[in-house]
Design a binder for these strands. Structure first.
Length: 285
DNA sequence: AATAGGCTTGG
DNA sequence: CCAAGCC
């Protein structure tokens, strides 16, 4: 008899652990401003996320790369009690709660959030009443706070893609339209503003028009993920290149980047820096 | 010790 | 021009 697929438990048996580790990770970044703890928690979560066997104890978890004494103890505490004292405390803390909320506004980071809290602001309504304390980016982020957090269903993205292709090809059939981001990596997500219909939420779309010679670097960059990009750019540096969203350039003996390498495919970027090619769906970490 | 690079803002 | 902050 064949086994039925069970995405919720079979697919991600350690999802509970990942969830609290990600929350701790966000706390360390936004409230505590400890980037290294942020990374440590995030890495631990990512290691557990890609594991398809349920972890039964802290000791077992400790064998994994990226999980040490402290996180192992938290896993044990969570296994025994179903919660974490540390997180419970954070949830009670007004400052932590406020800063966590404010950093969800696009354009507000840990520093600005703490500054707003110090100024006595506590709620999104407070922010709306104090727009003079925000820059343009943050005002837009606040205006569309809820909508920007919504994921765009894949089907809606495909509809947008078709509409864009239709209109842009009419302009000039030589244009190429490519949807990037997690959509291209096989998932569904977003990033100018448009409204299709009044009953649908506002969506944030990043639309870039790039010249042909920069197309492949742009597509590579906008496909992500961010972690994947960082890893690949680090590798590029080791191989004597600098890679950004516009070009791949060799770093000369002066230490300065030279002329961009001519490219005719995404794969070529990988080849130049001797990095194993990954299909978009394999770039999720 | 730890994983890039660019844009905006403020000085 | 530079540094900080944010993405």
């Amino acid at each position: 008899m064949s086994k039925r697929k069970n995405p919720s438990s079979n697919d991600a048996p350690n999802a509970d652990f990942c969830e609290f580790l990600m929350e701790l990770s966000e706390y360390e970044k936004n409230v505590n401003r400890n980037i290294h703890k942020y990374n440590a928690y995030k890495n631990a979560a990512s290691v557990l996320a890609s594991l398809n066997k349920k972890i039964e104890s802290g000791d077992e978890a400790k064998k994994l790369k990226g999980i040490g004494e402290k996180i192992a103890k938290k896993i044990d505490e969570f296994l025994q009690s179903g919660k974490l004292k540390k997180l419970e405390n954070i949830h009670q803390d007004i400052e932590a709660k406020t800063i966590s909320l404010f950093t969800r506004v696009s354009g507000i980071g840990p520093v600005k959030a703490a500054d707003l809290f110090k100024g006595g602001l506590r709620t999104l309504k407070d922010l709306k009443n104090n727009r003079d304390k925000l820059n343009h980016h943050q005002i837009i982020g606040l205006k569309y706070f809820e909508d920007f957090e919504k994921k765009i269903p894949r089907s809606e993205i495909i509809a947008i893609e078709n509409k864009m292709k239709e209109n842009i090809y009419k302009l000039d059939p030589k244009f190429t339209v490519t949807i990037c981001g997690s959509f291209r990596r096989g998932k569904s997500e977003s990033g100018i503003l448009y409204k299709l219909r009044d009953d649908l939420p506002y969506r944030r779309l990043d639309i870039r028009l790039v010249p042909c010679e920069k197309y492949y670097c742009a597509v590579l960059y906008f496909t992500g993920s961010d972690v994947f990009n960082k890893a690949m750019r680090t590798h590029a540096l080791e191989k004597g290149f600098t890679l950004n969203e516009y070009s791949l350039r060799p770093i000369g003996s002066t230490g300065l980047p030279g002329e961009p390498v001519p490219l005719s495919s995404e794969e070529e970027i990988f080849e130049y820096i001797d990095y194993p090619y990954k299909k978009p769906e394999e770039r999720n970490k």
